[in-house]
């Protein structure tokens, strides 16, 4: 009885995790600019990953695999924002160099729109206002 409940819970978590994964990948494909894609990627790295690893943990039962899955979970929990921040900061530096459009939020009015990403001038206006 309890075992079947656990396996149903595990299947639900795996299914939900797959759903968030697919949504994140869809976002990575559909969103118009780099920073928006980063939000979609961070979605696959947070809840999608937690749910899939959680489902596997329920499947694993007690033992060393459970401990190792916990380690993977903790590791991804701490590294994915670090990687995301490094990516954003690196993008910021590169677009500053190119005089890109997103860097306008750091230095409004510096340089024109250059790249094939969407030139979202509303960003600049908002950043000035805030």
């Amino acid at each position: 009885m309890i075992e079947s409940a656990v396996s149903v819970l595990a299947a639900m978590m795996l299914g939900l995790g797959s759903f968030f994964m697919i949504s994140g990948a869809l976002g990575i494909l559909r969103f118009p600019d780099f920073y928006s894609r980063m939000h979609a990627a961070s979605m696959t790295d947070t809840l999608g990953t937690y749910l899939i690893i959680g489902g596997l943990m329920f499947t694993a039962g007690w033992g060393l695999p459970l401990f190792k899955l916990t380690l993977i979970l903790v590791f991804i929990f701490f590294t994915s924002p670090t990687a995301g921040h490094a990516l954003a900061k690196s993008a910021q530096l590169s677009e500053l160099r190119l005089g890109g459009e997103q860097s306008g939020s750091a230095k409004p009015g510096a340089g024109g729109v250059h790249s094939d990403q969407h030139p979202d001038s509303r960003d600049l206006a908002r950043a000035d206002r805030v």
Partner: peptide
């Protein structure tokens, strides 16, 4: 900053 980046929808750039 880490928590901001960890929540999808917001990213700390600098």
């Amino acid at each position: 900053a880490n928590s901001i980046t960890l929540t999808p929808g917001t990213v700390t750039v600098s």
